[in-house]
Amino acid sequence: MVMSVEQTVEMAQRPAETKPTKPAIDWRGRLLDRAPFLVACLMLALIVGIYGSLQSGVFSLDELNLDTAAAMTLMLAATGQTIVLLRGGIDLSIGGMISLGTVIAATRFTDDASTTALWALIILALGFLIGALNGLLISLLKLQPFLVTLATWSILNGVAMIILPTDGGSIPSWWVGFASAQPLGLTSPVWMLLVLLLFWWWFRATRVGIAIQATGSNEKSAFLSGVSIARVNLVTYGLSGLFAAGAALFLVTQTGAGSPTIGKDYILPSVAAAVIGGVSLFGGRGHLAGTLIGAFVLTLIGNLVFVLHVSSYWQPVASGVILLLSVLASSVAEKAARNRVQ
């Protein structure tokens, strides 16, 4: 858990020579702090346990490869959403960005690798720019992120429809093959998962990573300690757009086509994955590892419903119950954290 801004500021103000004596480790506090994440791990273990007892071959590399591919679009979308949630915002526009990304890919990608690579970069750049624009609008107009990104979602959706009114277009087969390629024994989605974790390990300790979390934790004190809120917003939503574009580029390896409406299916699940993983909707608290576990949980519920031979209607029911449990765990942790600060 990152230090809250109050703690950071307090430490900075403390004279250097009176270094505090090492405080006793507050085990109970630490446990409570991590409660939402631990609950997510427990739920994943439980789901995998039940799934593994009903289906053979669950504890295998094949299964990991398959499930990671199934969850990767959501994971990428939810990575961006996690950054926004840590900032204390929300990004609905990722739905529009994902749709737009898939339709641009499906209409522009060719068998020529360099053309396709160029367009992939353009899609990623577009994602960052549109996201940054969200951040700019939120800072400049002092509007609710919900409203701003709702508007951009709608605009991007419309543009996607203009480019490709119905599902279709085509994605070159070598791009589609990316998802099942197995460099060094693991499929590319599993490598992507590892890269995401590495990225996070690096990113959360960078200046901008700390600034985003500090701003999400307490905007006022972050501002007072010299953080540029406008720049934080720009980078936060820019990254969210970038990851949404990345999600689109991965999604087309699964669909082999563009779809002007497909992005909406990832908006709320991206928030749900983060919340299940213990990311607080109030900003400042959470970790990408939790979000990725949340995305696995949401994806594996589908597998579980399949092997249990129950009606697929149980899938949203189960997702909802899990979400509630997660929110409950988060709120307990949140309260405990507040008590300790006081």
Partner: peptide
Amino acid sequence: ENVENTVQAQINS
């Protein structure tokens, strides 16, 4: 096998 009207869900199913 019914799915909840999303492409991703039908792919996974």
